[in-house]
């Protein structure tokens, strides 16, 4: 396919990009979706990101009753904070001094997308999915996280209808911090389990 040199921002479509445009146009023509619905869904997903998860974690650190609800039914807890997570059965697993949790989907790339946004490339990679179930401590070490021998690792493989998020431990030195400040130290990687919050 030739490039249009007169219009700088245009470039030849790949076969798959051509397929995307074609599929979308056909579906719009048939009334299956509308262009507007596609645009809105793109923008909706763009707005979803780890910030929401961080707010949930911060609230759990500050509010024991919310923490209890979060661990019992993660979806209802998010909704209680005004965070809509459609089609998501969220299970929150808490890190403790005895256990550190890490999430994976070995079969594809299941992830709590409606809460945390689109997952990072590495989470979907063959290397992560193959190795974290078999040598979690080595994989965490590659992320710069060393888990002490006396702490058990709990790997969660999301094979079915639940979606998982880690509730990290609140680090020492955060006494008196407000929700916003606490949320600022909770990264996406902390909620997947390959990092822990740092002050």
């Amino acid at each position: 396919m030739a490039e249009r040199s007169d219009i700088g921002e245009y470039q030849a479509l790949t076969y798959f990009q051509l397929m995307e445009v074609s599929l979308r146009e056909l579906l719009v023509e048939k009334g299956v979706v509308s262009e507007q619905a596609v645009s809105e869904a793109v923008e909706d997903m763009r707005r979803r990101g780890p910030d929401s998860g961080a707010r949930v974690v911060a609230r759990a650190w500050l509010d024991a009753e919310f923490r209890r609800l979060l661990l019992e039914n993660g979806t209802r807890a998010c909704e209680a904070m005004g965070i809509e997570v459609p089609a998501t059965r969220l299970v929150v697993v808490e890190n403790t001094p005895q256990a550190h949790n890490v999430i994976v989907c070995t079969l594809c790339s299941c992830y709590p997308r409606m809460l945390l946004g689109i997952p990072p490339d590495w989470y979907k990679s063959r290397n992560y999915r193959s190795r974290v179930v078999r040598e979690p401590r080595a994989v965490l070490a590659e992320f710069g996280l060393r888990i002490a021998d006396e702490v058990a690792i709990r790997v969660h493989d999301s094979t079915a209808d639940m979606r998982y998020m880690v509730l990290p431990m609140r680090p020492a030195g955060t006494e008196g911090w407000d929700a916003a400040r606490l949320a600022s130290i909770v990264s996406r990687d902390c909620m997947i389990g390959v990092a822990v919050p740092k002050t």
Binding site: R134, R137, A138, D149, I153, D157, A160
Partner: peptide, 14 residues
């Protein structure tokens, strides 16, 4: 397995 004896993996199974 090269980790610790108490390490576990949880999987959803029908």
């Amino acid at each position: 397995y090269a980790g610790r004896a108490g390490d576990t993996i949880d999987i959803e199974i029908f």
